[in-house]
Amino acid sequence: MKNSKLLSPFKSNSLSLNNHAVMAPMTRSRAIDNIPNDIMATYYGLRASAGLIITEATSPSINGLGYPNIPGAYSDEQTAGWKKTTDAVHANDGKIFLQIMHTGRIAHQLNLPEGGEVLAPSAIQAAGEIFTSEGPKAHTTPRAMTLAEIEQAEEEFVQAAKNAIEAGFDGIEIHAANGYLAEQFINTGANQRTDKYGGSVENRTRFVIEIATKIANAIGSDKTGIRISPFSEFNDMLIFDDMRETYAYLVEQLNGLNLAYLHMAGMSPKIPEGYLQELGAAFNGTVIYNGGLGYDLERAEKIVSENEDSLVSIGFPFISNPDLIERIAEGADLNEVDQETMYTSGEEGYLTYPTLEKAN
């Protein structure tokens, strides 16, 4: 791809990247016992030609491990495991951020270690089912968090961020999207609290703003990014009346923190046309636009060309093409994703996708 803006270097006050293509965070369920391992290090190291890698969702506590075999960032063993991944990426001249996600009510008790509990802003069960060791099960009805537990959860996010820096990550991304705990506070369908964390726009965004502020203070605003997903109904989120007002206020408050970036998920068909660009223009820093699990490369090129200080996050193509950047540069065909091996254990469908060199 000649004269590609997508493949050109990117530089901001916080980021210095080899290109504008970001590997989107994607759960792969390879962290046995919730500990990052050698095959995960190999997987991310092979994809280090991305301008920036954002890891799969990683829990800051045992209460946030709603899915089977997702990694954590709250123990010494997990920090040591993640160090293998950051070493592998940096050895290949890449940059990598850890995505921190607490699943909240999108969980089942069977998936939590002993002592873990399904907690959320309010005791409202999420619709649908979740995979467990005993097959698909209805989500566990959460217990509403006390004020002390909210403060504890915030401190868990902060400690996970500190652990990430100790493990060698270039920064972290707060997952405030896709219906997980941070967005559950924002969304009136999951938050019916009557205290300072519920009701008004200011109250419902408080948890997210407090986490972002505390993490930025702990590790540096230049190492702190955040992901949001307005107008998404994923994981039983509600499209509520003051959605625009809520996210306008949230972005305004985040502007005061000088974060590394704002990452916006764009997978919902309910997003009004042009809305994400409008919201991105209101943010005073780098914006990462995301198109869901995949991304049409021509569309990605168009977005970074038309939106100054923007990046594009790409999902599925990075799973099946460890050398995606090289393939784009050469105009080569892409491997297709095998969805049957998306969340299985082991190397199949994880380390077995061929590079151009191996294919030829």
Rank of each mutant, 00 (worst) to 15 (best):
Q109D: 00
L110I: 09
N111Y: 02
N111G: 03
N111E: 00
N111W: 02
L112D: 02
E114C: 04
E114L: 08
E114P: 01
E117N: 09
L119E: 08
L119S: 11
L119Q: 11
A120W: 07
A123K: 13
A123D: 14
A127C: 13
A127P: 09
G128S: 13
G128Y: 14
G128C: 12
E129P: 05
E129A: 14
F131E: 15
F131Q: 15
T132E: 09
T132G: 12
E134D: 12
G135S: 11
K137Q: 15
A138R: 11
T140P: 00
T140L: 07
P142A: 02
P142F: 01
R143S: 11
R143A: 10
A144I: 09
M145C: 05
L147K: 04
L147M: 07
L147F: 08
L147V: 10
A148L: 06
E149Y: 02
E149T: 01
I150S: 01
Q152R: 05
Q152D: 08
A153D: 03
V158D: 01
V158I: 05
K162A: 05
A164L: 06
A164V: 06
A164D: 03
I165P: 03
E166N: 14
E166P: 01
A167I: 09
F169P: 05
D170P: 09
G171C: 09
G171L: 06
I172Q: 01
I172A: 04
I172G: 03
I174Q: 02
